[in-house]
Nucleic acid binder design. Structure first.
Length: 488
RNA sequence: GGCGGCGUACCCAAGUGGCUAAGGGAGAGGUCUGCAAAACCUUUAUUCGCCGGUUCGAAUCCGGCCGCCGCCUCCA
């Protein structure tokens, strides 16, 4: 496996610290508001990375934290007039609701910053003792000048950063680049006792403490959004390596941004779409496929048009499954065997191709392409109306193989009817499956007496409401029209 | 200003030295169908922002230019 490592700036062959095991820490969210699509991307990307390691037989220990104390949470609490921990609790629950919907699995351990205050204080004290940190008025700062390798992750020198001159001015710091390990609290702010007075931890220290406590002083993979490279992850490296004297993390993985009109989706620009807002109009699987259709390090331009394309491609899968289900009902096991050569060959090559794609820095877009190639091959085979026990087995094998590998991406795991029922909801179609079936029966009777006019008008009426009928050899099936907005 | 990235068909997107430049969406024609739909077939980039160079050979490497974006401040 080759993984692009931000630290080395290239794809590195992955070798775990301990054979067969991989330890991963991913920066989660600060729970002060609803998550947007950018958060969804990060969560889904690392969810897939974790699933793929498991698929490869690794024993995975996966940690994702919650930042549940910070300035933004305090601000939010003041705005809403509720205690800060209520804010954290509320948005943690909302986070789970969104992530569960998106099929993002819970991490093995999900530590919260406030559960590790004592450990953070210990580490900060350690840094002071070792001469890497200093106290000013109840604040503790990390002294960047003391850590020679500062800048090795974000590839910049201390001088360049100072030349940037956009660093905040804080008189108390010895150097503008120094960052807070501990912040003295103001009157009325949440605080914890410490050797330096009442206060709260700085942001960066929590990830160092929790990751090292849970995974060891050196672990395999640390991930997060590309915007965390500097200063967050740079600072984590500085304080962690200064403290232990050992390398902190072997592989740094960062995902790219979601953009809207080419600009980064962000809270401050106000150009964000929340996950739940998107899920009102699209099935979660559509969002997942959309996000996995682009390599995780590339930017993705977000738009409803693109989601409609993704929706059509997901529909292509479930339509094929529906077709297979219909077909298998009537296949003759004792019929003469049909040559299954092209499909059998595709089935043979598929696992290897899929893994080759994923082994190359988790190329989900290519892996997804291979899945669709196999779907095409399966459809081709069905077009030839194969018969016989062998044909049946080949078809079943194709489907189970697609499902098995799609599970790594956690897509394509439902039944066609589950997908259709979900579409009824996201498209705002008022009809129930029962009502549609009723119409189909009615139309069947008209068709039986060759009353094409009546049959066609029923079909058109349903089409107007977003339902497409398909007359197959094995009966009539319905689907929700996808890929375009339903005119309301 | 410093550092980093991107520019592949109508849209999205994979491909980073050499088989026919994946795959999805959209369009056109065809097969199938009572008609449709789905599926399949054909078709839509002799060409990969532009200009040079290296090479037997480049979308892929090097140089320059143009355009876009990100980080340098909280940020997935």
């Amino acid at each position: 496996m080759r993984i692009y490592n931000t630290l080395t700036g290239k794809k590195d062959e992955f070798t775990p610290i301990e054979q067969g095991k991989v330890r991963i820490y991913v920066c989660g969210v600060t729970v002060y508001d609803y998550c947007h699509v950018g958060h969804a991307r990060s969560a889904i990307v690392f969810d897939v990375i974790r699933r793929y390691f498991k698929h490869k037989g690794f024993e995975v220990k996966y940690i994702r934290n919650f930042t549940d104390i910070d300035d933004k949470i305090i601000k939010r609490a003041n705005e809403e007039g509720i205690p800060w921990h209520e804010v954290a609790k509320k948005y943690t629950e909302e986070y789970y609701q969104d992530m569960d919907a998106l099929g993002v699995e819970r991490a093995d351990v999900e530590p919260r910053a406030t559960e590790y205050i004592n450990e953070m204080i210990e580490m900060i004290q350690g840094l002071i003792d070792k001469g890497y940190a200093y106290v000013v008025d109840g604040n503790v700062y990390f002294e960047v000048e003391k850590f020679g390798e500062y800048g090795k992750l974000s590839k910049r020198s201390k001088d360049e950063m100072l030349a940037g001159a956009r660093v905040e001015v804080d008189e108390r710091k010895k150097n503008p680049l120094d960052f807070a390990l501990w912040k003295a609290s103001k009157e009325g702010e949440p605080s914890w006792p410490s050797p330096w007075g009442e206060g709260r931890p700085g942001w960066h220290i929590e990830c160092s403490v929790m990751s090292m406590r849970l995974l060891g002083e050196t672990f395999d993979i640390h991930g997060g959004g590309a915007d965390l490279i500097f200063p967050h992850h740079e600072n984590e490296i500085a304080q962690s390596e200064a403290f232990t004297g050992k390398p902190f993390v072997r592989y740094w993985i960062h995902n790219g941004f979601i953009t809207v009109s080419k600009e980064k989706m962000s809270k401050s620009l106000g150009n964000f779409f929340t996950i739940r807002e998107v899920l009102k109009r699209f099935d979660p699987e559509v969002l997942r496929v959309f996000l996995l259709s682009t390599h995780y390090r590339s930017p993705i331009e977000f738009s409803y048009e693109q989601l409609l394309d993704a929706e059509a491609s997901v529909d292509r899968f479930y339509t094929t499954v529906m077709r297979v289900e219909q077909y298998l009902k009537l296949i003759k096991e004792d019929g003469r065997d049909t040559d299954e050569e092209p499909l059998a060959e595709a089935l043979e090559k598929f696992p290897e191709r899929f893994e080759e794609a994923m082994d190359d820095d988790f190329n989900t877009a290519l892996a997804l392409g291979h899945i669709f190639e196999l779907i095409k091959e399966l459809n081709r085979y069905l077009d030839r109306r194969p018969q016989g026990i062998k044909a049946k087995e080949t078809i079943e094998k194709a489907l189970s193989l697609i499902k098995k590998y799609s599970a790594v991406l956690n897509i394509f795991q439902r039944t066609p009817s589950e997908w259709q029922i979900s579409l009824l909801r996201t498209k705002g179609i008022k009809l129930t499956p029962e009502e549609i079936e009723e119409k189909i029966k009615e139309r069947q009777q008209a068709r039986a007496r060759k009353d094409w006019q009546t049959a066609d008008s029923i079909r058109e009426a349903l089409y107007e409401q977003g339902i497409v009928l398909e007359d197959t050899r094995h009966g009539t099936v319905w689907r929700v029209k996808v890929g375009e907005e339903i005119p309301v």
